[in-house]
Amino acid sequence: MKKLLLVIIAYCALTSHDMFLKLSTYFLEPNKPAVISLYNGTFEKSDNVISRDRMADVSLQGQGVRTAVDTSQWSGKDSITLLNFTTGTAGTWVAGVSIKPRLIEMKAQAFNDYLVHDGVLEMLQWRKDNNATEKDAIEQYAKHVKTIFQVGDKTSEDYKTIFGYPIEFIPLENPYDLHPGHDLKVQLLWQGKPLPNHLVYIGKSVRDHDHSHDHAHDHAHTHDHNHEGHTHDNVNGLRTDSLGIVKVTIDQTGVYYLRTIHLINSEKEGLTHESNWATLTFEVGDGHTHSHSHHTHDHSIDSEGGIPLYIFGIVSLILVIGLYFWFNKKK
């Protein structure tokens, strides 16, 4: 059974239809242009762009203020939806996107397959127990995704802001105060209340620095270069406790994500099922909150975690001039 679950989890990681907000780095500098990418597909690969009219909410939360983002700032490229924005002042920021509900009709077998693919095991079991595996489905689904990123050095309390989405993850600690070796408790809320005993999938994408490279060529998706220099995810399925909390084991630096689907039978006319999907992404650094080079892939001298560029420049200049005069005098 455990083996089957692992196979399902692995399959889910490669073929699910989730939505994620991602950044090339989750450590940004204040008041600089940046991009948030909306992936609709898997964590690694986006299958399509989301049009603006489908977005019920696009918000940025920082400095205690939630700002609605003008969706005209969204653009699409290579099946990825992109939000270009300028970062604000230093602090922990949250971006959230909620997509309006849509309907999908599925034949019984296709619906069963989707339940397997996306790891909605409770519903699959319910269908088996209630002889419903032969029934076609009309499902109304909506997706609600969030990402937490760090701007500048100073962390803030915005990470725990409740956006009021039907389903959402709320970290109980600031991920940007953590480093490997610490666990992060995350609470899952359904209609604003803790959702107990619910299956949550936790994945991570580790920087190459920490791991040998395992390229996306190994996936079922061939030639996927749409990565960020990460090794592939290790996905774990966990259940929330009685308070709706799951514990994320932070054992390495890298990008972590949580995903879950809340799928119920529906009594609404014309529907058989209703689902709400939630994901949360964030990055764990080495415990320092400054926007250093590890996160920007910038290992050059200018990295904020290293020697400031101007110091390197001044020292080099002094060194060359000093050496010049020394060799000139020695002549």
Partner: peptide, 27 residues
């Protein structure tokens, strides 16, 4: 000294992957 000053900054500027560059590529 002016020649030194001209040449040194050219070789000392930063080079890395930044969100700004990513934004340029995306657009």
């Amino acid at each position: 000294i002016l020649l030194f000053v001209l040449i040194i900054p050219i070789v000392l500027l930063a080079h890395g992957v930044s969100p700004e560059d990513q934004a340029i590529l995306n657009n």
